[in-house]
Design a protein around this nucleic acid. Structure first.
Lengths: 200, 200
DNA sequence: GATTAAACAATAATCGTTTTTTGTTTATTT
DNA sequence: AAATAAACAAAAAACGATTATTGTTTAATC
C-alpha cells in the first residue's frame, strides 16, 4: 500500500504495467499538447484508466510529469550505457553520448516541448538535478580508460567525471560555441584533443 | 538622424548621455520590478525624460531591454579584460573570469531577475547569441599563452577558445557538476589540470 | 535639431466571473 | 486487493469586459 508516497522518494518501477500505461499516456499527451494543456483527465482517457489510478501511483500532476521525464532519461542512460559497451575508447564513448544526446534533444519529447513551452525546457536544462543521475554513469568508464592507459591514473575519478560531464552537457546544449562541431568526426577529434592533452 | 534603426544593427554608443540616462533608468526598473512589470512610461519617469526620446533611441521595448543586458555584458567584458592584464597565466585568467562571472550572476541584475522571472534568465543563458560576443575575447590571450609556452602552439586558436568558453560557461552555469568547485583555489587547480594536460 | 507633450489606434495586461481541473474521498465493481 | 466511477471542495485556467501599455504621429518647446 501507499504507493504514491513511495514513488516520491524511491524510484518508479517501470515493470508495473499500470505505471507503464500511465506514463505512456502522459508522455503521449505531453508530446502532443505540452505540459500545461495536458490534464490528468485527458491522460486517464488516453490510457483508458481512471483518474483515481493515476493519483494512486503519482502524488500529483507534477510528480507524473517528472516521472515521464525521469523514465525518458533512464531510458537514454540505459541505451547509452549499452551502446558504450561497443565503443573501444573513452573518447569514443563520450563522442557517442554527445551525438545521441543531440539526437534526443532534436527529435525526442524535448523537441516538441521546446516548441510549445521553451521556458520549461530551459528551466529543466539549467536544473542541476537534471544531471545528477548521469554523474554516477561515468566513473566505471573512467577507471577502465585508466587501466587501459588511455588516460592518466594520476587524475582522480571525480575530477575526470566532472570534466566529461561538462564537455558532454556543453556540447549537447551548445552545438557551436565558437567552433561549429557538427559531424561525429569533428566532435571526436575535438574530444580526443581536449581529453588526451587539453591545450598542452 | 534615424538613430533607432542604426542601433538595431550597429552597437549603442554608451557615451551619448541620452542613451546612458535611458539605459540607467531601464536597468533600475528591471532591477526593481523585472522586465514584465517595467513599462516604457515608468522608465521615462525614472529617467526624467519623455517616452518619445526612448523610442527615438530604441526601436521597441525589446530592443531597450536587450540594450540594458548588452551594456551590462560589455561592462563585464571590459572590466574582465582589464583585470586579465594583471593575471600572469591563461589559467589565472580563466579562473578570474569564472570567479567574477559567478559573482555577477549572484549579485548582479541577473540575480534579481532570476527571482521574479527565472524562465527569462534561463532562456537568455541558453541563447547562443548570449556568448557570441565573448568568443572574440579569448584569441589574443590564447596567442599570448602559446608564445609564453604555457600551452602548445599545435592547437589552433579557435579550438582553444572554444574549450575555454565551454569551461567558463559551464563552471559559471553549474558551480558543482559532480565536483563541487567552490573556492578560487579549487577552480584554479581544476582548470590548470584540464587545460595543461586534460586527462592525459 | 533634438526633446517634449499630447493624441491616437493597436496591442497587451488586468480584473472579476465562470468554467475546468485538481486532488481527495467514498462507495461500487472486477 | 486493486481499479473504477462518482461526488466534492479548493485551486487553477479560460473567458470576456475593462484598463493600461505600446508604438506612431503631430505640433509645440527648448
Amino acid at each position: 500500500m501507499a504507493k504514491a508516497e513511495d514513488i516520491q522518494f524511491n524510484s518508479l518501477d517501470y515493470d508495473d504495467p499500470m505505471v507503464g500505461r500511465i506514463l505512456d499516456a502522459a508522455e503521449q499527451c505531453i508530446h502532443r499538447f505540452g505540459i500545461r494543456r495536458s490534464t490528468v483527465g485527458e491522460v486517464a482517457r488516453v490510457g483508458k484508466l481512471s483518474r483515481g489510478s493515476i493519483y494512486r501511483y503519482f502524488a500529483d500532476k507534477e510528480a507524473l510529469v517528472a516521472g515521464v521525464f525521469k523514465r525518458r532519461q533512464e531510458l537514454y542512460l540505459n541505451r547509452t550505457e549499452a551502446a558504450l559497451e561497443k565503443e573501444p575508447t573513452l573518447v569514443d564513448k563520450l563522442t557517442h553520448s554527445v551525438v545521441s544526446g543531440r539526437k534526443d534533444m532534436e527529435e525526442g519529447i524535448f523537441a516538441s516541448l521546446a516548441e510549445t513551452e521553451p521556458e520549461t525546457v530551459a528551466m529543466m536544462f539549467l536544473d542541476p538535478s537534471f544531471y545528477r543521475r548521469s554523474v554516477s554513469f561515468w566513473p566505471p568508464h573512467v577507471l577502465m580508460a585508466q587501466e587501459a592507459g588511455e588516460i592518466s591514473s594520476d587524475v582522480d575519478v571525480a575530477t575526470a567525471t566532472d570534466l566529461l560531464m561538462r564537455l558532454a552537457v556543453s556540447l549537447v546544449m551548445f552545438p557551436n560555441m565558437g567552433l561549429g562541431l557538427k559531424t561525429r568526426r569533428e566532435i571526436r577529434a575535438y574530444l580526443d584533443q581536449v581529453i588526451k592533452r587539453g591545450l598542452g
